[in-house]
Design a protein around this nucleic acid. Structure first.
Lengths: 237, 237
DNA sequence: TAGATTGTTAATCGATTAACAATC
DNA sequence: TAGATTGTTAATCGATTAACAATC
C-alpha cells in the first residue's frame, strides 16, 4: 500500500518559510550581478554584505534546499544560479492568464520585467463587453466564459487577478474551477481558496499605508508634518 | 540642554514591527466592511475570525498603539477607525511625485485605489526627452532637474519610483536630496539610503517567483509540472 | 449580578545569529 | 600545510498564542 505514494523527484520535506523564499529571490539577483562583473565564486559573506543580511542566514537559507557550497571555496556562481532557478521554478516557462484589463491590468501587460524570468502573459480575460474582442500585445480579450477552454488550450497554470475587489472572490473561484494552480492577486481583498492553490497578494495601498506610517514615525521628518496631530481627545496617561 | 529635545505629540516609543503595521492595514479594511454592514461595535475575536488571525494577536497589535477597546464591550468601530487612520497616517493628504512614466508608471497614474486613502499623485517626472512636456491626467511631465522646485512648490513628501533598475539608486539619491521623506520603490533593486528616509519596496517578479515556488511545492499540482526535474547531478543524500 | 471581552503577563513557538568542527 | 569557508548545532532573540485578572 505504502509505495503507491508517488515519490517526488526532489524530496519536498516541508515548504520553506515565506521569508526564506523572498531572500532566495534576492540572492538570485545578487548572483546575477556578481556574475555580470565576471566573478566565478562567491562566499556567503559577500552575498550577505551586498544585501545587508547576516552570512549565517545566507548559508542557512541555502542549506534549507540542499548542499550547494564548497567548504574553503564558497559557492560557484553558475552552479548556484542553476540550483536557485530550479528551486524557485523559473527554469521553465509559465504561461499566465491576465484577468481584468483595467488600468493596472493593461500596465502589467506592457510591463517587461516578467518575461525575463519565464513568466509571460498568454491570454487576456475581461467581462466588460466593451473590452471583449479588443487586442493588446497581439492578444485578444476573451470573456470569462471562455476560461476553461483557453486555459486548457494554452496550458496556463497561473493567473494574475486585476479585477475590482467586489469581483475578486467570484473570479478566483472560476479560475480555480478551471484548474489554475496559482494566483497573483492585486485586488485589495483576501481570497478564500483551497490550500492546494497558491496565492500571493500584492496590495498597493497596504504598501503605501506602511510607507506613510514609516515616514510619520521616523526621526527627522515628523516635525513639520505633525501639524494635524493636535486634537487628541482621549489620551489618558 | 536636555529639554531642547522637541517632544513629539504622540509619544513614539518604538517603531512597530513591519508585520504589525501590515495587519493594522487589514484591520482597517475589515472594520470598514463591518461598518458598511451596519455594525457598531466589534470584538477582537470577530476581527480575527474574519481575517484568519488569532484574537490575542489582534488585541496585542492594537494595544501596541494605545488602549482602544472597552472590556466587556469590544471596540467601537468608528472610534477604532479614526484611531487606526491616524496611526497609519491616512488622516491627511499625501501629495506624491511619480517618477518614471513607463508602462508601470502610467498604470499607477490611472489606478484609482490610491486616492481613496489620501494618496494622490501631484507631479510627474521623467528624464526621457520624448516624454517631458506630455500630459497625463492633467499633469505635465517634468524633467528630473525640476525636482527641487516642483517638490517644494507642491509640498510633496513621498515619491513613487517606477524607473529602470539601473537608474533607481541615482534617482533615489536625487529625490532624497530634495527632502523627500518616503519612497515606494518598484524598481527591482534595493536602495541604499539614509535611515531617515522611509522605503517600501514592491518587486513584482519576486512575488511571481514566490508564487511559482508555492505552486511547484504544493501537493496536488506538482505531478504534471515536474517533468523538467530529472537530471539532478549531485544529490548526495 | 452574570456574561463578555479587554489589556497584559507568562508560555510557546519559530526565526536569526554565533560559534565551530569538518572540509577543501 | 595554513587559511578560508562551508553546513550545522547551540544560544539568542523576537513574535505568536494561551491564560486570566480587571472591567464594563
Amino acid at each position: 500500500m505504502r509505495d503507491s505514494r508517488h515519490e517526488s523527484p526532489n524530496p519536498v520535506e516541508k515548504l520553506a518559510p515565506k521569508a526564506v523564499v523572498g531572500r532566495v529571490s534576492l540572492y538570485l539577483r545578487q548572483l546575477e550581478a556578481f556574475r555580470a562583473q565576471g566573478q566565478v565564486t562567491i562566499s556567503s559573506n559577500q552575498i550577505g554584505t551586498a544585501l545587508g543580511i547576516n552570512d549565517a542566514q545566507v548559508r542557512k537559507d541555502l542549506a534549507f534546499f540542499g548542499q550547494f557550497g564548497h567548504p574553503g571555496v564558497g559557492y560557484r556562481i553558475d552552479e548556484l544560479l542553476t540550483a536557485l532557478r530550479r528551486i524557485l521554478g523559473i527554469d521553465r516557462d509559465w504561461p499566465m492568464a491576465l484577468i481584468g484589463l483595467g488600468n493596472l491590468g493593461r500596465a502589467l501587460l506592457k510591463y517587461r520585467g516578467f518575461g525575463d524570468r519565464g513568466f509571460n502573459i498568454a491570454a487576456l480575460f475581461d467581462n466588460d463587453q466593451t473590452k471583449v474582442g479588443m487586442r493588446f500585445n497581439d492578444l485578444v480579450v476573451h470573456p470569462l466564459d471562455d476560461l476553461p477552454k483557453v486555459i486548457a488550450d494554452k496550458n496556463i497554470c497561473l493567473a494574475i487577478l486585476t479585477v475590482p475587489a467586489e469581483a475578486a472572490q467570484r473570479v478566483a473561484d472560476q479560475v480555480v474551477a478551471c484548474g489554475i494552480l496559482g494566483i497573483l492577486n492585486f485586488a485589495p481583498m483576501p481570497l478564500n481558496l483551497p490550500p492546494t492553490v497558491g496565492v500571493v497578494a500584492v496590495d498597493l495601498s497596504v504598501q503605501l499605508e506602511h510607507l506613510a506610517y514609516k515616514v510619520l514615525n521616523t526621526q527627522g521628518g515628523i516635525s513639520y508634518l505633525g501639524s494635524t496631530f493636535r486634537d487628541e481627545h482621549d489620551s489618558l496617561e
